[in-house]
Amino acid sequence: MPRAQPQKHPFTDTTMQNETMKEPNAQDSSAVATNGQTQLRRLERIAAGEHLPSEIHPEIMDESAILEIKDFCLWYGAKQALFDVSMRIPAGKVTALIGPSGCGKSTLLRSVNRMNDLIDGVRTDGDMQLYDQSILAPDVDVIELRKMMGMVFQKPNPFPMSIFENVVYPLRIDGENNRAVLEEVCERSLRGAALWGEVKDRLHESGLSLSGGQQQRLCIARAIASEPEVLLLDEPCSALDPVSSGKVEDLISELAGQYTVLVVTHNMQQAARVSDYTAFMYLGHLIEYGKTEVIFSEPRLRETEDYTTGRFG
């Protein structure tokens, strides 16, 4: 993997770059002290309400973006939760959002299919474009938008109905009642979610009778049933045991390429394993965004390294 050339990147601030161009492996005491100082400075400045430009790696500009977030801000009532987030989400790739709790990664994810509309007092600024079309414009059909985005939540939330009905729910609400179509979609989605083998003989049992990991894969099957453009995964493994998590991770890797996946996770290893690109967020600010290997091995910013290695956060 070639090392990124930070100087070429238009958004990169040179002063900051100088601070972070240190050898990451340097273990001498002075280097550590400087690191700590820098980190404190940058994060303290953000905590103090200052906005610092994000460190965005240039490779991302080479990818074709399906979703482009431009200077997106969001307020819950008077409290601002996202500050001028700008991201390009590459098509057909897995993009992970990482960061400590409360950093706004779930909020960003939920803004993509406008689930935040359901919360009273949410206000946004900036823009998000799917295929060069704004999704925040007032005339956008939210229902159609959501149909283009499958979403999977932190806690498995199968509906109180049969496995079959759970999977074909997106089609049912579209009024599709053709049994053959439904069955075909059900099988395809369940195979896609690697659940077909486990449930094919009991499609008419309640979705709630499955185990937690199976329930989460059922939710993924539901999310891909309507063949969405983007798959939004909000900490999909946080309520699952390691074995189930592993299955869901394998699934995410398989889904990459077929779908554009945006995944929020708290688990560094998971982000490193499944994603192509990783964005590190802190207190509503996008700090660094780049290829996953780079972010986890040689990030531009000390803060990112500290977070991914567990020194802070």
Binding site: M115, I143, R146, P160, Y169, I173, D174, A223, S226
Partner: peptide, 18 residues
């Protein structure tokens, strides 16, 4: 559950009914 349904693109009434 409501969010799950709404995220599938169901309208409010569809979510309530189903």
């Amino acid at each position: 559950m409501r969010e799950g349904s709404l995220a599938c693109g169901a309208t409010k009434w569809q979510t309530i009914r189903r």
